[in-house]
């Protein structure tokens, strides 16, 4: 596999890898580094890529594992990820600003989910993978994926409900 062939293979999904990495690592810079690292790893093993049925699933799996490793080593050294991605508001229509604000809330809520649920929400609701693919990537069975996803979606719903009725109802 030469360079242009490789680039043709990775172009359709490299943004997805980045978004997945960002979901887990939160910081844009770290997500970029992680994506780069994963793509370089794929490139170094480019001769073996043909034996995989889906390079994309492989890449997603590598990204997932790499990011989880990164998080683990971070926790071991007691470092906290510093990020400032939330507050990127631009002047605009009131509705737009409000929307962006509430999207930030959704992002924060997802950020608080357990890693497994975070990954599944990312893969299903944002990247729109089929359950079968997610099960393969996550190394889980489909039922377990559905259960985890349902749990995650309900958590998001409950948190949003709380926000929505904030100030109206006493807790």
């Amino acid at each position: 596999m030469n360079q242009s062939e490789f680039i043709k293979t990775i172009t359709p999904f490299k943004d997805r890898l980045f978004r997945l990495a960002k979901r887990l690592l939160v910081s844009t810079e770290e997500a970029e580094d992680a994506t780069q690292e994963v793509l370089v790893r794929l490139w170094n093993n480019r001769e073996k890529l043909k034996s995989y049925s889906s390079v994309e699933a492989l890449a997603v799996t590598i990204t997932k594992n790499y990011c989880l490793d990164q998080l683990k080593s971070k926790r071991a050294t007691e470092m906290r990820i510093v990020h400032s991605n939330y507050s990127d508001r631009q002047a605009g229509l009131l509705q737009q600003a409000e929307d962006r604000d509430s999207w930030d809330w959704v992002e924060k809520i997802i950020d608080r989910l357990p890693e497994q649920q975070k990954l599944i929400v990312q893969l299903r609701d944002i990247e729109e993978y089929e359950f079968e693919e997610i099960a393969k990537i996550m190394d889980m069975n489909e039922t377990a994926v559905r259960v985890a996803l349902s749990r995650a979606r309900k958590t998001i719903r409950e948190e949003l409900k709380k926000l929505h009725s904030y100030g109206i109802k006493a807790n």
């Binding site: 680039i7 990775i10 490299k14 793509l39 370089v40 990247e127």
Partner: peptide
């Protein structure tokens, strides 16, 4: 789902 990876990969 619209965020994009903008860095180049050193191949």
């Amino acid at each position: 789902g619209t965020q994009q990876f903008s860095k180049t990969v050193p191949l």
